[in-house]
Amino acid sequence: MKNLLGALVGLLLIGSVHANEVAVVDFRAALLQSDVGKQEAVEPKKQVAEMDARLKSEQEKLKTMANNLKRDELTLAPDELKKRRIELAQGQNKVRSMAAGMQRQAKQLEQQLIQKLTPKGEAALKEIIKERKLDLVLNRELIIYAKANADITKELIERMNKGK
């Protein structure tokens, strides 16, 4: 719905501005795919991989607990069975909470990376706008259709790579 609304606004802008030269760009992708973006993403990717490894370790422990409980279920005293089921449920809650926290942290790392790269990307984009004499540049995510030559994402990546 949000994208559709954005596309309609974009189309209205195009009609009302009577732009001669229109381009679309995936600014986020350009930032992350540029050489500087890849270089800056090394540490955040490492942090996310470490978080993922911790999560998988916890999931493995939980799986072992569940298998052990299933194996021992018929031989355990009712109090011990109840205790281990509670421990398993608490472990499952812990893993779910851990996964949600890791997703938030990964998203935050990406946002910080985007913020850090934005000034360089904006400078390169301004150069392209000036050189091509563009009247309007729209975010590719908001566009339903654009000719291939209207997309300047690759050009922006190349420009950012040149300006290291």
Rank of each mutant, 00 (worst) to 15 (best):
V9A: 13
G10N: 15
L12G: 14
L12R: 08
L13F: 08
L13I: 14
L13T: 13
L13C: 11
G15D: 07
G15F: 10
V17K: 12
N20S: 14
N20H: 10
E21G: 13
V22P: 01
A23V: 09
V24M: 07
D26P: 04
F27S: 06
A29I: 04
A29Q: 14
A30G: 05
L31N: 04
L31G: 03
L32F: 10
Q33P: 00
Q39M: 04
E40M: 11
V42L: 13
E43K: 15
K45I: 03
K46Q: 12
K46H: 07
Q47M: 08
Q47F: 01
Q47S: 07
V48Y: 02
V48H: 01
E50Y: 02
E50N: 10
M51V: 02
M51W: 09
D52M: 08
R54I: 10
L55V: 11
K56S: 08
S57K: 15
E60V: 03
L62E: 09
L62Q: 12
K63M: 06
K63L: 07
K63I: 02
K63T: 12
M65E: 08
M65H: 07
N67G: 11
N67C: 00
N68P: 00
L69N: 07
L69F: 11
K70Y: 01
K70I: 03
D72C: 04
L74H: 06
L76W: 07
A77L: 10
D79S: 12
E80Q: 12
E80A: 15
K82V: 02
I86M: 05
E87P: 02
A89C: 01
A89D: 15
Q90N: 13
Q90E: 14
N93L: 10
V95P: 03
A99N: 08
G101F: 05
M102E: 06
R104A: 12
R104G: 08
Q105R: 14
K107W: 02
Q108V: 09
Q108R: 14
Q108F: 11
E110A: 07
I114P: 00
Q115K: 14
L117T: 05
T118M: 10
T118P: 00
G121W: 03
G121N: 05
A124Q: 08
K126I: 02
K126M: 07
E127P: 00
I129R: 11
I129N: 03
K130V: 05
E131L: 09
K133Y: 00
K133R: 15
